[in-house]
Amino acid sequence: MQRSPATAPTIARLIEAFHRLPGIGPKSAQRLAYHVLRAPRAEAETLAEALLEVKDSTRLCGTCQNITDADPCAICLDPQRNDSTICVVEEPLDVAAIERAGVHRGRYHVLHGAISPMDGVGPEDLKVRELLSRLGDATVQEVILAMNPNLEGEATAGYLSRVIGAMGVRITRIAHGLPVGADVEYADERTLRAAMTHRVEVERDEGTD
């Protein structure tokens, strides 16, 4: 990154640190750095502490492998949740997204990635063994595969359905089709095919005709 000689080295260092974050370009990095510079000392302290704490006190939940402060995590400990279904996702952020939607009341399992055959990323590189150790007794009756609808997600779902199928556990995969807000005209053929395959009956309004 270009550094103007007028920028003090300490500020330049902060700008560079921000610039290394995902999605932060040089301009945004500069804006953030000057924001911190002008902000009260307490705000900078809160930020610095939060940064260090996330490194020091987070770990993986020994059960679901999600990132957590306490092991087992809050979701694994929650007695209200249903033990008979596990929703398997690629990344911790996927758990957060599904939780925000409030559509799953069972447990989770985070793989921390997806199988990528051409990059040599296989099941051994993911938290697959940890998943299998949670199955096999009669507690879990359904595994919901919530992989991304791309080649890596399909490879991962294909592999897991073979392993888990051999364990005699029911496997489902979340449907894919048109996202809300999308245009049919721009959809690719595979998305349209999936949307057509999983089409649903339209309920007729009472009182018409």
Binding site: I115, P123, G136, Y159, R162, G165, A166, M167, G168
Partner: peptide, 17 residues
């Protein structure tokens, strides 16, 4: 490598049971 993983998948499932 993935083809080999797939070939082993069912054995892995059965031994996990």
């Amino acid at each position: 490598g993935f083809a080999e993983d797939l070939a082993r998948a069912e054995t892995i499932g059965r031994s996990a049971v």
